[in-house]
Amino acid sequence: MQAFLNQKTITAAFILLAVAFPILTQNNYFIYIVTLSFIWMIGVYGLNLLAGYTGYLSLAHAGFFAVGAYSLGILTVKAGINYWAALVLACLITSFIGLLIGLIALRTKEHFFAIYTLCVGYILYLVIYNWESITGGVRGLIGIPAPSNIGPISFQNPLSQYYLVLFFLLFTILMMYRIVHSLSGRTFIAIRNSEELAQTIGISTMKNKLVVLVLSTFFAGLAGALYASFIRFIGPDIGYITITFDLLMYLLVGGIGTLAGPIVGTLLLVWVSQYLQFLQDYRMLIFGPLLTLIIIFYPRGIVGAIYSWKMKLGKKAKRTSDRGKSSGHDKGTGSMAEKKVEEG
């Protein structure tokens, strides 16, 4: 109970901090960076649901991100549709493409799935790059409108855009929390741990995997659409494989298969990247080995490391308290087991 309360207060504190952040800094550059990392976070959450909770490593997420961004761009610039309608449509288009690809891709497993999605990502990139009449080819799309007003609220200045993106991020996190802690979430984790076992207890793995993929691409599309209206310009580069690797890195450093992982990883890495800007293309000299080292030594990232550290502390505390009273033993292991399930 106390741990839960603790978690609740921490969450509330973070939300408050996020809301108060622009007032605290007053620095437009910082607001810009944080808004951008919020957008990435939404995409990373999408990837997390698929790779972290269901165990299917998709390497096509930059492609889906780009589909979301281009759908919004094309719908608003070329078709002249209202922004909010375009935003919803962009998400739906992306998830529909995700559904189509999933129908085929999810018949494959493990390495095949990774390679298959890698190729799908490349196809999406090449199509965007070559389909000049619609996507503008290598020149990209210019002049994507900012979100249109809702009643008296306008989204022209960075501050209001920050709150808009924050709203969508909180919506994403809430959705993720609800999904992961629902029966479906448990089902996804069961599929990750052993697909055969999940099948034997009567889980329709294909249906569940498809649901995950569609949800995952939905959030990738949402992130892409927000990105397009925030940056106001998109080029085919946002669909390239390096963006997938960026997303993957944010996820891994933070902690794959954890709820807090995407926030921690994205904020940390985007922030560090700003300091490493002088390195530009060479930043991978640091991030590449970092990615490899993390997967060897801390396969569940920073958040996972904190969890196991906490658990160790808990065990120690339990051992000392056990000496005092033996009745507390059952309760201790019970809550610990619960915690283990919580973090998946």
Binding site: A51, G55, L57, E110, H111, A114, F245, L248, L252, D281, Y282, R283, M284, L285, F287, G288, P289, L290, L291, T292, I295, I296, P299
Partner: peptide, 27 residues
Amino acid sequence: PLRKAPPIHDKIAAIGILLFLEALAQL
């Protein structure tokens, strides 16, 4: 070191090496 890890780890580690070597070549 990763030979007993879940298969997803090998792939990610390989991607890390790929990114590093490319940046190194560019440097």
